[in-house]
Amino acid sequence: MTDEIVFYTNPMSRGRIVRWMLEEVGQPYRTVVVDYAGMKSPDYLAINPMGKVPAITHGGVVVTECAAVCAYLADAFSDAGLAPATDAPLRGLYYRWMFFAAGPVEAAVTAKSLGQLPPAEKAAMVGYGSFDQVVDGLEHALDRNPWLLGEQFTAADVYVGSQIAWGLMFKSLPARPAFQAYAERIASRPAAVRARAIDDALVAEAKAEEG
């Protein structure tokens, strides 16, 4: 068993979220870039049967799904201060917004992008209700404080912030002032800057090899 963090990713994927989280944690890690064909290889399917990145291995543990990886790393390396203590009052709020983004936000944005939002009379059948309810709920979390937990930046901001930044970039979320200001704050974090530079360099390298 090894305590090495091995990070399986592709720089043109949700792996960029976990890269940012790893940079926030500040622990050494080894990157394994997996191309899209390689995600379906037997070796990688043994790590993640879904055949998707990102994934990490650490101390014999395999963790997939971006929100889960962010939460795991925050707890595994608690000295980084990226999650409230398990007995802290803010722990509930931390869980709330982390899982709100992984559930209702992800589902509603995907459904809207695919033109598959339910009609109003069927909205009660889906966990997110309506797209507008999700967007309003997300805005409510951001319209009073710099971060989701107030003054404390956490792994929830890494995950939720990534969702919002991509939503603004791809116009799958409305450009509300609260979202735009939040996206600017997260983009300026040193760890986010480092993570983007690493992944952008990998993208440029891959394009150069193709050319």
Rank of each mutant, 00 (worst) to 15 (best):
E210S: 15
M1W: 09
E139S: 14
L117Y: 01
L173R: 10
I198R: 07
H140L: 13
V158E: 07
P104D: 15
A83N: 05
M12V: 13
G127Y: 08
L168D: 00
A141S: 13
G59S: 05
V160E: 09
P146C: 10
A76Y: 06
L82T: 09
V18A: 01
E106C: 03
C66G: 15
A37S: 10
A141R: 07
P49C: 04
K207W: 01
A83E: 05
H58R: 01
V135S: 04
A183H: 04
T154N: 09
V109F: 07
A76Q: 14
G60I: 00
E23R: 02
D199G: 03
G51F: 10
D35L: 05
V53C: 07
D75T: 15
I56N: 02
A204M: 09
L149I: 13
K171S: 15
E4F: 01
V61W: 05
G129L: 06
P42Q: 08
Y182F: 14
A192F: 11
R176E: 06
V33D: 10
Y182Q: 05
L142A: 00
L142Y: 04
Y44Q: 09
R144T: 15
L82K: 01
A80R: 01
M169K: 15
Y128C: 10
A123I: 07
L142W: 04
L82S: 03
M50F: 08
T2P: 02
V25M: 02
V6W: 00
L82G: 01
F77K: 00
Y94M: 06
V126S: 02
A187V: 04
M50G: 12
A141W: 06
A191M: 06
A187T: 11
P177T: 10
S78Q: 12
F7T: 08
L73I: 12
Y44W: 03
K207L: 15
S78N: 11
N10Y: 11
E151K: 12
G26I: 06
G26C: 10
